[in-house]
Design a protein around this nucleic acid. Structure first.
Length: 271
DNA sequence: CCGGACGCCTGTCGGC
DNA sequence: TGCCGACAGGCGTCCG
């Protein structure tokens, strides 16, 4: 579910509640996420002050002097700050307890998410070390994409969803960025000109920024840290709009499967 | 090295 | 109404 804008929305939502706080421990109701939640998570966190709340791609990183939490929301995860006594729902697997009587609560029905702890620089963790550039950081542009695409025959949509190419672009925003750039999602990545790659990079950046400003996209179960949905779904041009008229030319939006993922595009505007 | 398919989970929705 | 298959925002792994 959550792509970069939803993770960034979550980060912005939780950061003010974590600033200046200290963890008192953790309550883990179900350790069985994508990887097991550390058995000693509570002991690792107890007494540790929060020194940072960062995002890298779709990963959240919460820093303490002893080490860093690495959190991923998978397909269905969300984080909320609630009073620690709030009765948990069936999929509220982990509470990170804070010294103000509240907790950071992870809900993840499908359990594709992740809560890890590392004592080292989290950016060198095996899950993070190969991530590509942050699309919202200065310096991200078409030249980078174009260079990496040399010789690649994979569909451009698969290419920009590869976290080693660019971090944080998932299925929704890949569809939307390709529409904005006028590029057919199945076009081989290596057969896109430098100029069009520059358009694509700009489109990726723009759609992510707009989505963050709207609080992310809620298709079904994404909520921000207050439990509220994001409203960027209203602004989606193609994703989930099969058969509807293209907002640019009116031609019906088409749906195909690329890389086992649902893909929507305008066959007239995207080549 | 590259590309494509699969599996991990649960919930929901559409069709019969 | 009820059941069953298809599908869902991610991503690591395996195979050819």
């Amino acid at each position: 579910m959550p792509e970069l804008p939803e993770v960034e929305t979550t980060r912005r939502g939780i950061a003010p509640h974590l600033a200046g706080r200290r963890f008192t421990g953790a309550r883990v109701r179900n350790r069985r996420l994508r990887r097991p939640v550390p058995r000693d998570l509570s002991r690792l966190l107890a007494g540790q002050p929060v020194t940072g709340v960062r995002r890298r791609g779709k990963y959240l990183v919460i820093d303490t002097p002893a080490g860093s939490l690495i959190i991923h929301l998978g397909m269905s995860g969300s984080l909320r700050v609630v009073p620690a006594g709030t009765p948990p729902g069936p999929h509220d697997h982990v509470d990170l307890l804070l010294d103000d009587g509240r907790c950071l609560r992870l809900r993840d029905p499908r359990r594709f998410g992740l809560v890890l702890f590392t004592r080292r620089d989290p950016l060198t963790h095996p899950l993070l070390k190969d991530l590509g550039p942050e699309p919202l950081a200065p310096g991200f542009g078409g030249d980078d994409l174009w260079r990496r695409a040399r010789g690649r025959r994979t569909a451009i949509k698969n290419f920009i969803m590869d976290g080693r190419v660019v971090a944080g672009v998932g299925n929704i925003y890949a569809n939307e960025a390709l529409f904005r750039a006028g590029i057919h999602p199945a076009r081989p990545a290596g057969r896109i000109s430098r100029a069009r790659m520059a358009r694509l990079a700009a489109a990726i950046r723009a759609v992510l920024e707009e989505a963050i400003a709207a609080g992310g996209t809620t298709m079904r179960d994404f909520t921000d840290s207050q439990g509220k949905p994001g409203y960027f779904a209203l602004s989606l041009a193609v994703y989930g709009r099969e058969g509807e008229p293209c907002p640019r030319c009116g031609h019906p939006i088409r749906h195909v499967v690329i890389g086992q993922r649902s893909t929507c595009y305008c066959p007239r505007c995207q080549r």
